[in-house]
């Protein structure tokens, strides 16, 4: 079970994770939710509000695809703004994690 610090850390990078996941191809919320629940151990219900917010911020757009079983699926894809945000956030993350690595190595 994650502690408060880990939750804080994930909060900051969740958007980055969604951007990275969608950069591999369009997908629907359930797939994103279960993938991230598995990879970074976060609540599946978290994804839906986040997708709405990211859509509101112009990072994602959605379109409906008919499904053979059940209702049509809402797929998400990155917008141009979403791709730009991914590049920018990834650079920030790389810089940040390198710094932290250095600090941790120095601490021995």
């Amino acid at each position: 079970m994650a502690d408060a610090g880990e939750v804080q850390l994930k909060r900051g990078v969740l958007e980055l994770c969604v951007l990275a996941f969608l950069s591999r191809g369009d997908n629907y919320a359930y797939e994103i939710a279960t993938y991230l629940a598995q990879e970074i151990d976060m609540g599946e219900g978290t994804i839906y509000p986040l997708m709405r917010r990211m859509q509101g911020d112009g990072l994602l757009e959605d379109y409906l695809v008919d499904s053979s079983s059940g209702p049509p699926r809402r797929y998400y894809r990155l917008t141009r703004g979403g791709r730009a945000r991914l590049v920018e956030q990834r650079a920030t993350w790389d810089r940040f994690s390198r710094s932290i690595d250095r600090v941790l190595k120095a601490a021995k």
Partner: peptide
Amino acid sequence: HRRFLRPRAIPPNTAGNSSH
């Protein structure tokens, strides 16, 4: 009570094997 980013709940009967 899963607020934003609370860790994922592991249902009692499927603990350990992921459904993804």
